[in-house]
């Protein structure tokens, strides 16, 4: 918390780790999008294995984590790998201070959860129906739908 006050410009903090495959996979896209938006958004990369003093106060639960900072205050947090198009949307939102409108769950997760929920509900409907499967499937698809909304 205390460190964030130093970021007066719109900033995206990436907390990564050298052993993190998802971090390495996202690296080229993140660097490219950051370069495109260098005039409006600062990218700060923190290595969770080296910058412990700066990472610990952020209470990061996993890597990669992207933290959007506006006027020295955290406004949104995103954990997990993001595609280049998602990163572009995120940088654009951070630049105008509306990062909190971006869903906190990745598009891949939402697609897998939504498809899984619908398939499970379908299997349940065709199996009797087995209402427990229908309820689980609808619940899962609904959860994926809810995660499409920011927050």
């Amino acid at each position: 918390m205390s460190d964030l006050a130093e970021y007066t410009r719109p900033t995206l903090i990436e907390v990564m780790a050298p052993h993190c495959v998802e971090c390495r996979a996202m690296r080229p896209d993140l660097d490219a999008v950051a370069a495109q938006n260098a005039d409006s958004v600062d990218l700060v990369v923190l290595d969770a294995t080296e910058d412990m003093d700066r990472v610990a106060p952020l209470k990061v639960l996993g890597t990669p984590t992207l933290i959007a900072v506006s006027n020295g205050v955290e406004v949104a947090r995103f954990t997990g790998r993001r595609s280049r198009s998602e990163l572009s949307e995120l940088f654009a939102a951070v630049a105008v201070g509306s990062a909190d409108t971006i869903p906190s769950t990745s598009r891949e997760d939402r697609i897998v959860w939504g498809a899984g929920g619908l398939l499970l509900a379908g299997a349940g409907l065709l199996s009797g129906p087995a209402w427990i499967l229908v309820v689980l499937g609808v619940g899962l698809a609904g959860y994926a739908s809810l995660r499409s909304v920011a927050g």
Binding site: V21, G122, A123, S127, G128
Partner: peptide, 27 residues
């Protein structure tokens, strides 16, 4: 997340396979 070890195609294939097996088993 750093623990993820499946590609997108792998995840989708597993979800489809799982739903298929559940259908075969409970229908």
């Amino acid at each position: 997340m750093s623990f993820i070890n499946e590609a997108s195609w792998d995840r989708i294939a597993r979800v489809v396979l799982g739903a298929g097996l559940i259908f075969l088993g409970f229908s």
